[in-house]
Design a protein around this nucleic acid. Sequence first.
RNA 1: CGGGGCGUAGCGCAGUUUGGUAGCGCGCUUGGUUCGGGACCAAGAGGUCGCGAGUUCAAAUCUCGCCGCUCCGACCA
Length: 494
Amino acid sequence: MGQQSSRTSAGKGKGKEFVKEITPQAVDYSQWYIDVVLKTEMMDYAPVKGCMAIRPYGYAIWEKIQELLDRRIKETGHQNAYFPLFIPQQLLQKEAAHVEGFAPEVALVTRGGDEKLSEPLVVRPTSEAIICDFYSRWIQSWRDLPLLINQWCNVVRWEKVTRPFLRTSEFLWQEGHTCHRTEEEAEAEALKILGLYQEFLETEMAIPVIAGRKSEREKFAGALRTYTIEGLMRDGRALQAGTSHNLGQHFARVFDITYLDQDDTLKYVWQTSWGVSTRLIGALIMVHGDDRGLVLPPQIAPLQAVMVPILSKKAKDEVLAAAHRLTGILQQQAGIRLKLDDREGYSPGWKFNEWEMKGVPLRIELGPRDLQKEQVVVVRRDNGDKETLSWTELPRRLPLLLDQLQEDLYRRALQYQQEHTRSGADYDEFLQVMEHDYGFYVASWCGREECELKAKEESKATIRCIPFNRQLEHESCLVCGEKAAELVYFARAY
RNA sequence: CGGGGCGUAGCGCAGUUUGGUAGCGCGCUUGGUUCGGGACCAAGAGGUCGCGAGUUCAAAUCUCGCCGCUCCGACCA
């Protein structure tokens, strides 16, 4: 692990620095991120470069993402299935652009046991190739369409630069792979899923995103068109949070996925593929987190509230009994994910800091004084607001507080995104912005890759997406000044 | 893949310049006193010094190689 001496050694006094050992964002954002994922026990590094263990607290978040997203995927008519981890190398090589795109980062298995394999096996970097191989046999007739399948799995991409959750050599994701009769239907599917992703991120994860199309240069290897949702992190850099591809007939042609249509002619299917990954956890951390650690939106938080009893010597038994009773009632009547932290040997203050670092949305304090008045103190993680509530109103009030917190997190994130979105036609200003403040820069573009590359070389920013249905704000290209064709979002990206 | 930093107990570090039997703080264990924002006392446990070669009577320390983490640049969910 790297060294960081950026700690603020706040001393032992009752200062404001309760959460020790997390580098402040303003000091070193990258180090803040690393500190948070390690100290909150979301992950731990593996002995193999770029790999990690996702620890229970991190995995619980992934399970919430899976639960909420899987429901949506099924509600739109998709079924889950599982395809093999190993792909014969020749299969991957069938689609030219696809191989070219993934070749630099595939892991290859050349031995099995003590025998050399006659044909090397690729560890899936994505499953288009292997799934298309199956689809070519499963699809015969127009009646077999549309075919709507999703799988949850791990994939491997041999990355050179890795960061926990954001880019690892192995990661978890879901990948949908669909086949359709017509181009229109495939296009509609790709857009429907993008909308589904956007709705999921905004309502469940409280992360606002910009939805749009990728430029030719940025699109998926082998796709006709790639759609994306882009989020803005707290350091002003953009993160691609999900993608949806209209694959056209590129794969259908090389994998020979054909069906006999009603007019008695053999036709190639139109395909889509789409996915989101454990990278979403990284987005969650960066969009909402603060100097005290994680801040989790209630919908995604494994724990929505934690009750901390304050155990004075005389009232210890009574407080604990009341805390247990209240916890049970709230779990049932309020239907919230609540934990009672009744560990002994940790002071209340220690527990406060611990759960704040882990981002639990609400803390409920119950002490001897509260016992007499049959009340508790409830504290919000996001803004520290405290309120005293009677036991009787808790079951009704807690869900409302959680809803409010969820909404506030989204609003705050949206406000940040808007405040860090500039638009203009001044290339020098654009370079300045990308040098110092980052954020989105909305500009006009002529559509030529030459300008895209020039901007990238000079600013390190890329075209993150071309948003839907937006009027040009300026007539000429930000870079070359020629007639503009499209409105685009530039940003420095993860 | 190129450049910089780092790797000593679970975590943070000292020790390396000038080779000579591995130390501090936190955490952990046990017992006791505590408990409304990281409590205190006492007694303990815990280390092949990233891995592998080499130099040497002797290597955490010197030499070479490799691995990993991290930051900055070229490719990507």
